[in-house]
Amino acid sequence: MDIRMREAIRYLGYGRSTVDEKTLQLMKESLVELEQLAKKKFVYRIFELEESDDGQLMIGKLNVKSRDLAKNLHGCKRGILFAATLGVDVDREIRKYEVLNISKAVVLQACAAAYLEAYCDEMQEKLAELFHKEGCSLRPRFSPGYGDFFISHQEDILRMLETSKKIGLTMTEAYMLTPTKSVTAIIGVYDTKE
């Protein structure tokens, strides 16, 4: 089964239970629609990382206090700031189905989330290949809002990547990404030779 399908099933709360025929049908439809709807875009930049003993991190000029992030990036000399989005049309369509057919809205939104994750994985895989040539590997993505990595850093990341101009990704005053089907993250780069 398609990984996106599997993830979407998980988001919908099915656990190990079998998915009913009608929901499965809605999911298939949704994934087909997403091929049309999603305007996938991503942007990244590489920054030097410095870590001080008290858990402070410097990502380029950005100062972050987060034990969890520090743990995730431990031993990394560089970090990739990463942002990706599926664009506004997905939001519009989900909103449309909220009015017309709420079950479809719920399924579409789960599928869009899975679609986005798969896209991020795919892009990260490409980056990993690039870094592999240099003898480096990548840590998993770590996003603002995870653990004690304050969500307010969303703003710094968007600004440092110029996401609003480059991929149309912005945020609300409450630091929610808009379009909503979007991700920002930092990915640690470590030297495999060491």
């Binding site: 919908l12 709360g13 239970s17 998915v19 009608k22 929901t23 057919n101 709420i102 719920v106």
Partner: peptide
């Protein structure tokens, strides 16, 4: 846990 959200909503509709 035998009926899931999409089904609950389809029934509602």
């Amino acid at each position: 846990g035998t009926v899931f959200l999409p089904q609950l909503l389809m029934s509602a509709e």
